[in-house]
Design a protein around this nucleic acid. Structure first.
Lengths: 351, 351
DNA sequence: TCAATATACTGAAACGTTACAGATTGCCAT
DNA sequence: ATGGCAATCTGTAACGTTTCAGTATATTGA
């Protein structure tokens, strides 16, 4: 009996880390009271509440995530679902930071749930919903009729999409105004005297493909320019594909004198193709490209750019999911980033 | 008493998702037996084991993470700690995918724990260790004397570092052989007749800064070339900084005729600076650069590159942490990626 | 035949949290 | 006095898992 290790309440001895029981012992209260005092429940006396919170802060109490999760089902996790193959590099990095920025102020952790080419995009979503591994989900590469969004809506999993859907269902999203981008781009090219324009489009299938195409078409008729079809490639094709197709196109009789490109990496390939055909940027042809980090003007000073801020998108998406989880109406959590005007070298500073 | 909802074991009614209790009911065994059967414990009969595992697979049983975590303390989480400001875009995206690839085969989730410029790099580490939020940690931007590594070692938190330390402590790491890279780069430049070489170095403070400098110096003396000091900038400075400093350098009397650059984005700025000074790449000066995605040759075909595979690094790091968690000796979980030979345009294909 | 022993299984307790259903106290109206 | 009623506080159970300390049955050795 030298060691009273048998004592069930081992408050006195070396604790790993404080729990509600520790706090209860220190304050002389019951764990229930402590639990409630910490979350500002109304039936706790004002002084008790303050006292408990003070002690909790002093000893650095942090609720045990597993305990909370087991009891309540809340995971305090937001999952970002990413495609391993096709996702843009800067997108991944910026959006993660954007999301993190918002989550940092909250008890939420960010878990990254990847899926690869070979997998059904639904698979990670089903996993998250079935196992209840997250309180909210952020997805990208959104489609007009997106089964992932439909599924999560049906199963009551809060989520936000990067890009809009078009299924008549309402859910939070954040989107870049690609319609406006395409229009601005065409207008700019037209103002420079370009009349035969081609579009290096987003991947068909994604919603913003349509937005971009429409903006492009709307502006074409507005300015009275004509389209040179270039729909054999899109920005998620390989560098080599884009480059050779562009070169082919530029060697044709009726070649474009202006391009609108929806992706920065693709623009590198596009310009390479143009130059392969012996043509000069800013002379024979002009290119307006979206970019998400301010590097294109280093590549070719003649490039015209519109900046898309993925970090902002990440923050907005995070705020949206949290909002939905917090009970806000999903319809009130939708946002569109306006496309800036087209910037040339001297103006190109990422917002 | 129409609804026998009061029945404590509600096995019969609609379950949310199967638990051990569900399995126990279905098999007619106790939960303990089921739990053990699922993890191939020796004291379970062979047939029972098979039967339980079959049923578990059939109904898609997945252990509840919160339950396991609460009981055992194991989180089944690996945390990737990233700097929000300075981390390279492609690094973030590739390393995440590399890690994910390995974790996908396991019950582990990947959580991203960011920290920003304003924060102490130790803060996220302390958080992870104190709250026990992860079973293993991956850190980057490793320093020769790295307090994070020391802290985790002291507190028994398994981790792996991207880059080596130099504190006489042994822990898993994965590193790119930057010494070899610098040597190869210098040799190549020398073989092209370049004699006055400058180094656009990694950020001082990080371990691979030293490795790179040593490799550079070793090769210089090997080939008998001389160094033009260029230590006012490093690759994590801003594009503008690098560009203007480079232009300044290139306007000097004794300017370099060859560069070794440790980062792709920095190389863009470097080349811009070179051209600002009116000099031509491949003519007045040659540049060997590391890159992690195969874009530099689109930028300037004359660029010489060495590829660093961050995705591979991510996989290796993940494997290392898992290995350590699994009980392997930390000293056996260290790896070095050999630097490939310097590639010119025609050869430049990312491994 | 009996005990010893191995084999195959089981119930109860615990991890830390929250929700439910009380308890205790003081105060007020009756 | 007494009942009623806020205002505060508390014990117990439960979430799903693993571990501890068993129990029951069959098998063996004497």
């Amino acid at each position: 009996m030298d060691r009273q290790r048998t004592d069930k309440n081992e408050e006195t001895s070396a604790q790993g880390r404080p729990t509600l029981k520790t706090l209860a012992f220190m304050t002389g209260l019951g764990v229930t009271t402590v639990s409630r005092a910490l979350k500002d429940a109304p039936e706790i006396g004002a002084e008790t509440r303050r006292r408990v919170q003070l002690v909790a802060k002093q000893i650095g109490y942090r609720p045990n995530r597993a305990g909370v999760r087991l009891r309540t089902g809340r995971t305090n996790v937001i999952s970002l679902v990413l495609n391993t193959d096709r996702e843009i590099m800067s997108f991944v990095s910026d959006i993660i930071y954007g999301v993190s920025e918002v989550l940092a102020e909250t008890p939420y952790h960010l878990i990254v749930t990847p899926y690869s080419r070979s997998q059904d995009p639904m698979e990670p979503i089903r996993y998250l919903v079935e196992t209840g591994s997250a309180d909210g989900v952020i997805i990208s590469r959104t489609q007009p009729n997106d089964p992932r969004a439909r599924y999560m809506l049906e199963h009551g999993m809060p989520f936000a999409t990067h890009g809009r859907t078009d299924m008549g269902l309402v859910h939070p999203y954040h989107d870049f105004d690609n319609h406006a981008f395409a229009m601005e781009a065409v207008r700019r090219l037209a103002s420079m005297g370009r009349r035969r324009l081609a579009l290096l489009s987003p991947p068909p299938g994604l919603t913003y493909y349509g937005h971009t195409l429409n903006g492009f078409a709307d502006a074409l008729s507005e300015v009275g320019a004509s389209e040179i079809p270039f729909n054999t490639v899109s920005i998620d094709q390989s560098i080599e594909q884009i480059r050779t197709r562009t070169a082919q196109l530029m060697r044709r009789e009726n070649r474009p004198d202006g391009f609108v490109s929806s992706g920065a990496a693709a623009t590198l390939a596009l310009v390479a193709g143009i130059e392969d055909a012996g043509l000069r940027l800013g002379h024979d042809v002009d290119v307006v490209s979206k970019q998400s980090s301010d590097l294109l003007h280093l590549f070719r000073p003649q490039l015209l750019v519109v900046n898309e801020n993925f970090r902002l998108a990440g923050s907005e998406l995070a705020r949206s999911v949290l909002g939905w989880i917090g009970g806000a109406a999903p319809g009130s959590l939708q946002g569109l980033s306006a496309a800036s005007h087209v910037l040339s070298l001297s103006q190109a500073v990422l917002v």
